[in-house]
Design a protein around this nucleic acid. Structure first.
Lengths: 246, 246
DNA sequence: CGCACTGTTGATGTGCATCAAACAGCGTGG
DNA sequence: CCACGCTGTTTGATGCACATCAACAGTGCG
């Protein structure tokens, strides 16, 4: 199920010295509280590019905080069609959908060589009983995912292809920027087909959308390298938010 | 913001004598535990048809369990377009998306004269500290909403109009059936336009879809009355799950 | 009775899927 | 080193599913 490479000399596996701590589960906890959370994370996992961290149906053992790299999560219909439900970058949590029935409801693939912090869920729930702010953070994390999904439904229901692509780029830009990366230059770790699945479009439509945004001088995308030239223009495009035409 | 009709002679407002308790937050709690939860629900609200229980931006005070009636939740884009994000029947919880930023992220409208149990959220979190199974239920409730949204994304990304409609009817049928209502005959409380928004389609397409299902002998829908004639046929339709054609 | 609202059905247009072909990058092996 | 295959990306041509526009029927209500 998952690549259990034990990284031989284990890095001090602690939230307290993690670069994404301020975006993750321990947000707002005191030093002493974070140390108690640390005890749940016995060892980080490395996941090789293309490998699955967990698969649909796997029992829920841990939630996973992305530390390095990136992931896609996807569900597959009975007839084998894939729907990408999200992309995840450092500081973001994986596995939240498994809590509902103690089984993972999607599969998480590493888009590049990556590293995660497994957080044993039963222990997390136990610890959260004595740490109200930890419980509150978990509640918020879950709720935030719901809000995110609702805005994806808005996108799928009401935006045309170019607007979807613009919204996708803007969203990624903002999340990267909040992690200290450039908001204007970044690399897409996923294929066109995966972007298409995520946005409810075909890969060819993604290519054409990229060409349209390029022709309007908004962004320049060569292969997987993105350079945003006109952030406000992109934002305006999304706020148009029209169905099909116009 | 909400219709604060104090129902003059207050019904004994308790989970313990509620008809949907086995579907709601207290699921699996002991009698004594349910009684403690009862103390949070000081008074039920009635919400008139068409009125909003809460609106986008309202501060999160309570979550709401639907007791009687039904609701739709929707978000509105900057340019005023509505996306229905869900329909809610008795036993289902409203307001989960508000936890993320302590503000409601959508608006909840009553589709008919309805009644809800407000559950003061701050008190709920406090109580959940001493009732692990209550906390666990809340976690599951949140996670279940995420799973539901992901299957909606699959629907929006991969199903054609007739399949979406079939999936919608089947889903509603199952939820009603688990509440003791008939799975084969029920009434749609929402308009065609609202179904369309929910499924990412126009109202005319919903009408045509209804006609197609009728022509195949699967269901009969006159105005808002639904009669399912061939449940397996409907299921088969959804499992086809093809994009656009076929 | 008249008006507003909701639902149905037909005619037409279009945005995106589909099919197709060519190109770029990249690792492998001769 | 280049030839080769493989994967991913780009661009063009065509068709279709659904949006759009429009007309009309059914229903409820002041």
């Amino acid at each position: 199920m998952l690549e259990a490479h034990s990284p031989p000399p284990i890095l001090k596996t602690a939230c307290s010295n993690c670069s994404v701590v301020e975006l993750c589960l321990p947000l707002g906890l005191t030093g002493a509280e974070v140390e108690r959370l640390d005890t749940l994370i016995v060892q980080r996992y490395k996941v090789k590019k293309g490998a699955a961290l967990y698969r649909t149906g796997d029992p829920l053992r841990s939630l996973y905080a992305v530390r390095i790299g990136s992931f896609k999560t996807s569900v597959v219909s009975v007839d084998g069609r894939e729907q990408v439900t999200g992309f995840h970058i450092p500081g973001e949590m994986l596995g939240l959908d498994a809590i509902s029935i103690d089984q993972h409801a999607c599969t998480a693939y590493a888009l590049e060589d990556s590293e995660v912090c497994p957080i044993h869920f039963a222990q997390l729930e136990k610890l959260a009983q004595s740490l109200p702010s930890l419980q509150h953070n978990l509640n918020k994390l879950l709720s935030r995912e719901i809000v995110r999904d609702h805005s994806m439904l808005m996108l799928m229901g009401n935006m045309n292809s170019d607007e979807r692509l613009a919204a996708f780029l803007l969203n990624l830009s903002q999340r990267l920027s909040s992690r200290g990366y450039s908001s204007k230059e970044f690399v897409l770790k996923m294929r066109r087909e995966e972007i298409g699945s995520y946005l409810g479009l075909r890969l060819e439509t993604i290519c054409r959308g990229i060409a349209h945004l390029r022709d309007q001088g908004l962004v320049e995308i060569t292969a997987r390298d993105v350079r945003i030239h006109n952030m406000d223009g992109l934002k305006q495009m999304v706020s148009g938010c029209n169905r099909q035409s116009h």
